[in-house]
């Protein structure tokens, strides 16, 4: 009886924490690209460290691009962006969902991002792949997994 009560309380506590945690902790879900992505994508990116290095290259190229650098300078803390993007990219590449940032739509809602600005980030993403010697085909697995966020990010 005692064990049953404890289990019940634990269950209730768990489900409550799940209720609270869903929006604040894991606020973005893994995307479901058609045909999936290659199962070795995260490994081919160089694992967690590789993704982190890629994200650093990504922001290097973003901050060099006059079309988009001002947005990141004004609204984004690049260090924090690098941290959160590493989590996001690890998740969409098939790793665990440890993403602690806001949902893509919430994070970009007020920025009025245009398609051209979004595509400028895509160009930076490909440049980062080349810089980090990640194969084009592997890079496309990430593009594949991130593309469904387009509608959430581009609001203008």
């Amino acid at each position: 009886m005692k064990a049953f009560t404890r289990n019940l309380m634990l269950g209730a506590a768990l489900s409550m924490s799940a209720l609270v945690a869903t929006p604040s902790f894991a606020a973005e879900e893994k995307t479901q690209p058609i045909l999936g992505i290659t199962s070795s994508a995260l490994e081919e990116f160089g694992g967690r460290e590789g993704v982190r290095a890629w994200v650093e290259s990504l922001f290097y190229y973003i901050m060099l691009d006059n079309r988009i650098a001002p947005i990141f300078r004004e609204f984004g803390n690049v260090e924090r962006q690098t941290f959160l993007n590493t989590q996001l990219e690890i998740m969409v590449l098939g790793g665990p969902n440890e993403y602690q940032g806001a949902s893509m739509s919430a994070a970009h809602a007020d920025l009025g991002i245009t398609m051209a600005q979004f595509n400028a980030v895509v160009e930076a993403a490909y440049n980062a792949c080349e810089r980090n010697v990640i194969k084009y085909h592997t890079c496309n697995q990430l593009i594949n997994a991130l593309a469904p966020f387009t509608a959430d990010i581009v609001t203008r």
Binding site: T31, Q32, P33, I34, I143, N144, A145, A147, P148, T150, A151
Partner: peptide
């Protein structure tokens, strides 16, 4: 063609 990679 390009962006909705989660739809056929």
């Amino acid at each position: 063609a390009v962006y909705t990679s989660d739809s056929y």
